[in-house]
Design a protein around this nucleic acid. Structure first.
Lengths: 245, 245
DNA sequence: GCCGATTTGTCCGTATGTATC
DNA sequence: CGATACATACGGACAAATCGG
């Protein structure tokens, strides 16, 4: 539920772009038009437009207008973009999901994990290993570390459902920033035992940190994906800055 | 050369965060402090801070301050984040680079390529296949399609160097928005012949479109990376919006 | 090539709301 | 409760790029 005016305008324009009201290659109405349409200030319009730009929907052209660069074919596929939980992603793709908890332990961050995760050595964490089944096939191996001080009361039962739902609904903690690194790695023996890799000898690995509304790191996760069910989308834009060499 | 005030402030703060002046976990000076420090308006400061937030350097906390969530270890590795050309990336990682042009043709977009690339069927394009050698090893297979109408005069010689440098310096066209999708695919026979894949039977594939300053699509590229030399970083933040299920 | 209208880009000042402490 | 800090919104001003006459 967006309460901010710029967010409502953003969602409205986004919908209009997605449903083809403003087709690919066309220009949006000028900022002045939008100001009168929505009855707000220029800053508010510009903020909404900035959101569309970040999402790869439009690109502003100085002195000319704001061009739509969104092509409707861009849906489909199993996406891991933005911040969303595994269950959100699965639901969006209409997949039947089962989670099996392989390991659920409480442990202490050692030097190696500290370097990898960003946690401090000696902090107490939950160490959870889970396999995700999509439509019956074991396709994702999730290895999560949650900080006990920020995510207290975790159990194996919760881990079998949605930890994020527990964090946001039960603990009332908001998930705000997520940093991820994507790599491709050799499949380990463990990967081969737990996942249905087919004839792949490697998989897509998403490693990432998650920060709450206080800007505190509370999770480090490594997610290992069977390649067929992995796809990641990204949009980047370059300001003026430096030229190429 | 940043001429915008908010960009200078952004770069200044970014440097300060990177070199530890504002360490991980600490709060930046308040917006009011920064206003007096830099002698500018609140909007300008907020714009600079927004840039830091997008880049994953900081996270604002309502009523409290702006927390630094950048950890210095985050450089390293061969990154493909942001918009930068292959040569930029290689130079940043201090790698010796050689490009070998396998194929350089002029062709016309057919139905299949149109669906995949976003070009219109019938448009004329350059079809370029290149192998990138890093420190002597063939590690990346680039398949580019450049629109002839927007990138005229390409030659195999230019393709052996930096096409982007040609585009920006010679043609004076600016590269602005880039959309990419990352997947992991089985290695093809061609991959095996042209690249040094070791015992990997798959590779990281980056497919993407590039738009110029007019918001026009001028390039579609598929870049196939030997896994050892591929890593992609991303930072995402969630506004308020919807809760998780 | 110039001029003027339109459009986006930058910047400033101010006011009010809301969260934290 | 008051002080501080970030969030939203409005208004105005001028610069810079585009385009048509």
């Amino acid at each position: 539920m967006p309460k901010a005016k710029y967010d409502e305008i953003y969602l409205d324009l986004k919908r209009a772009v997605e449903n083809g009201t403003y087709p690919y290659g066309s220009l949006l109405p000028s900022e002045n038009s939008l100001i009168t349409q929505y009855g707000c200030s220029r800053n508010t319009i510009r903020r909404a437009l900035a959101g569309l730009g970040e999402g790869g929907y439009v690109q502003p052209i100085h002195g000319k207008g704001v061009r739509v660069i969104y092509q409707p074919s861009e849906r489909a596929s199993f996406t891991v973009g933005g911040i969303e939980s595994f269950h959100e992603t699965a639901r969006r793709n209409r997949l039947n999901v089962v989670t099996k908890v392989i390991r659920f332990e409480e442990t202490v961050v050692d030097a190696a994990l500290a370097r990898e995760s960003g946690f401090l050595e000696g902090e107490e964490v939950y160490d959870i290993l889970r396999v995700r089944y999509l439509d019956g096939k074991p396709l994702i191996l999730d290895h999560n570390f949650f900080l006990k001080s920020l995510v207290p009361g975790l159990t194996a039962e919760i881990a079998a459902g949605s930890v994020y739902a527990y964090i946001e609904k039960k603990l009332g903690m908001q998930i705000v920033t997520s940093k991820r690194t994507i790599t491709v790695e050799h499949a380990t023996a463990e990967d081969g035992e737990l996942l249905d890799l087919g004839d792949y000898n490697c998989l897509a690995v998403v490693s990432g940190q998650t920060f709450n509304a206080d800007g505190l790191l509370f999770e480090y996760t490594q997610s290992r994906h069977q390649p067929d069910y992995f796809s990641f989308h990204d949009t980047a834009s370059r300001k003026k800055k430096e030229l190429l060499t």
